[in-house]
Write a protein that binds this DNA or RNA. Structure first.
Lengths: 230, 230
DNA sequence: GTTTAGCTTTGACTTAAGTCAAAACACTGA
DNA sequence: TCAGTGTTTTGACTTAAGTCAAAGCTAAAC
């Protein structure tokens, strides 16, 4: 049973980064919960008693405006976490959450979570590490999105693969369309950009295998050097 | 003395959001440190013994590549925090950090920080709240940067001000150039965009006071409705 | 094999938004 | 008051990258 929960936890993009021992401790305090479509998780203004990890299904988070209309803020899917901010803050839920289809969730009660952290502060420390690392990555991506062009962003993505080695092969673990949205563009543009990088001589593309021919060149493109400037 | 540190802490964009009592506790374990230009904070691979908040000056973080050349990853300025990720993770510093000019920093020793969290886990919880809230905002901004145009982003920024009320006045607390970079654009474009929104009848601009004339319209522009579609 | 469906690539076209430079405006201190 | 500095606006121009639609590929399914 707890084993089953553990498996689900490690599908969450954030939690999977925790140290295994801590993740197990977290699984211990978790309980599973199934919702039918349109069942409500929590309401706006209600005291935040716990947060949820979505395993399957989908949950919409929305606010009820003064005029009674509901305004959807976001829809969350598998692997995403809902409601943790007010739980950590100790405030009320700032919005409502309702399942839009049959969903399986994992629930973490606030008091059990706090108790866990009191016994093992390292768990909180581990979570702080994950969040601040993620924050760093996002700050960087935001910078890149507004300052760099698609070519530089793709080059940067590819350059992560091979450190300093003069040549190597990167196997894309994402589909090209997924990669496109990862670096903030669309498949058509990505395709053209791959070709552009290939023409520059920095890489060679064969399906999902990218041969990095000139790592230095790739790095300089990644840092914003225009191809024409060479 | 500690009072002085406290003041500096509340200038950090992240720490200032902490509950005052916790911030004071944090100030208790902090020590001030002054660096001359080119003085090194820490080296790559060295055990992470603590992290720093920059009060004045500037610190560059860089990696030494296999070929000995230093590759600057980022330069941090006042209010920013350096080195917290490896400290939280309990790993070595992944890069080097050196002051690029005379700088005043505040140092948090890892062991004192952990000890503090052990005594008062609520402090960690409070920090978790701040980080996850910030993360949420960033996820949203990243979405907006790649999916929405400047007009929608500006409309959204302005719409935060007036909830559901049909009309109100928002006083910009940022300069227009700061606002521009906040929503991922440049002053020239921002200026034109303000005019565009004004022409649509949603707002009226007078210097740093923005009169919101039609909140509904503004909200629909914010959610991606093109002005031509009306 | 052939069909169907899902990616990926390509081409032709459009446009939002950036660049650069000049002008207008605002604010401070002499 | 005026000079002097910094910010905001404007205009003319350029371009990266998006849209849409068609054509190629793969690869599993019949």
């Amino acid at each position: 049973m707890q084993q089953h929960i553990l498996e689900n936890l490690s599908k969450s993009e954030l939690l999977r980064e925790m140290k295994p021992a801590f993740l197990e401790a977290l699984a211990e305090i978790a309980v599973e919960r199934t919702l039918v479509s349109d069942e409500t998780l929590f309401m706006q203004h209600q005291e935040a008693t716990g947060f949820y990890l979505i395993c399957t299904g989908s949950v919409k988070v929305y606010r009820i405006g003064g005029d009674g209309r509901e305004q959807v803020i976001h829809q969350f899917g598998p692997g995403e976490i809902v409601g943790e901010v007010p739980v950590f803050q100790g405030t009320a839920y700032p919005a409502c959450a309702t399942a839009v289809k049959k969903s399986r969730l994992i629930y973490f009660a606030r008091n059990r979570f706090v108790e866990l952290g009191r016994r093992q502060p390292e768990i909180f420390l581990n979570m702080l590490a994950i969040l601040s690392r993620r924050l760093r990555q996002f700050v960087e991506l935001i910078d890149d999105l507004s300052l760099k062009d698609v070519t530089a962003r793709l080059a940067k993505y590819l350059a992560r693969g091979c450190d300093s080695g003069s040549s190597c092969v990167v196997e894309l673990e994402l589909s090209k369309s997924a990669l496109a949205s990862r670096i903030g563009t669309i498949p058509a543009t990505l395709s053209r950009t791959f070709k552009k990088l290939q023409d520059s001589g920095a890489i060679k593309v064969s399906a999902s295998k990218i041969h990095i021919l000139d790592c230095e060149l790739l790095a300089s493109i990644a840092s914003g050097e225009k191809l024409g400037d060479l």
